[in-house]
């Protein structure tokens, strides 16, 4: 690098230092604090806080909800991206906008929508009550709210990639005699697998960490409708800091794993995208 076009050394070092201090203060320090607080009363207390029945139930519920949300959004997101990227139809722009809606709406409002629709005094409240179906303040409500909040992740990852890949490979597959499902799992899915996985990881992280929407529909019934984030809040409000941070540390570990997986995928996808560029312009 030519020295004359870089900024003076003190400015460069100053800016780098500022960024590092900022990062340390707002990211590294809190993360360290979570683990030090969690282990403040030793490994035994940490272990006990996680093995406690309510905590275990919260972990189980979180895994269940995240599993259902990820699987449904995998299916919805793939279907929506496939439709938007590979076909022309009326109302396509409205569909694209609707997919982004959960990003624009506050999670609390998302939760309230389900209370309004399925709650005791909601539109379907009487009918649900008569048929003894519980949605709000029960697991189905938590699942619905989580699906809503995490809906855009998979679709938004896939749409731009599928659009840039076009439909020629699919057409080639069809003209070679492949059926619709064969085209999907032999051509379309392998071409987007890394982006799909990326979307799933982001979706999963958000599903496990979601607080606002879930908090509204959960009802905070210990051992029944508390997910991990809600359980952390309950413990914290009871001044049981060590236990609260112990459960929180599990979420922090999830965050670190997500970050690592995300970086790995980004590295992988950069290679795939650069191949895409070469193919788009083979004589360059």
């Amino acid at each position: 690098m030519n020295r004359s076009i870089t900024d003076p050394a003190p400015l460069r070092w100053g800016l780098t230092l500022l960024a590092l201090v900022f990062l340390g203060l707002f990211v590294a320090l809190p993360l360290a604090a979570v683990f030090s607080q969690a282990l403040a009363k030793g490994w035994q207390a940490y272990w006990a806080a996680i093995r406690e029945p309510d905590a275990l139930s919260a972990i189980r519920l979180t895994l269940l909800v995240a599993g259902i949300a990820v699987l449904s959004n995998l299916a919805f997101g793939l279907a929506a991206a496939w439709a938007i990227a590979k076909f022309q139809f009326r109302g396509k722009n409205i569909l694209v906008t609707l997919i982004d809606l959960p990003f624009a709406v506050s999670p609390v409002i998302a939760g309230l929508i389900y209370v309004l629709v399925f709650g005791a005094r909601g539109w379907f409240g009487d009918w649900l009550d008569a048929h003894d179906v519980r949605i709000v303040f029960a697991v189905p409500g938590i699942v619905l709210a989580t699906i809503f909040v995490t809906f855009p992740f998979v679709a938004r990852e896939l749409i731009p990639l599928m659009q840039s890949q076009g439909t020629e490979e699919e057409e080639a597959g069809i003209s070679l005699g492949a059926g619709g499902w064969q085209v999907l799992y032999r051509i379309t899915l392998p071409n987007v697998k890394w982006s799909l996985l990326y979307g799933v990881i982001l979706c999963n992280a958000r599903a496990m960490g979601e607080f606002g929407a879930v908090s509204v529909v959960s009802g905070h019934i210990r051992g029944q409708t508390n997910t991990m984030p809600l359980h952390v809040e309950v413990l914290y409000n009871e001044y049981n800091f060590a236990a609260a941070f112990a459960v929180a540390s599990l979420l922090a570990i999830l965050a670190l794993v997500t970050l690592a997986a995300k970086s790995l995928l980004e590295w992988k996808m950069r290679r795939v995208y650069s191949e895409l560029r070469v193919e788009a312009n083979p004589e360059a």
Binding site: E169, E171, I174, S175, G177, I187, N191
Partner: peptide
């Protein structure tokens, strides 16, 4: 298209990249 037994060669090849 699949039933017609037609070999189609595309301008931009459309090879299966995977």
């Amino acid at each position: 298209a699949g039933e017609r037994r037609v070999g189609f060669v595309f301008q931009h090849y459309a090879l299966f990249r995977n």
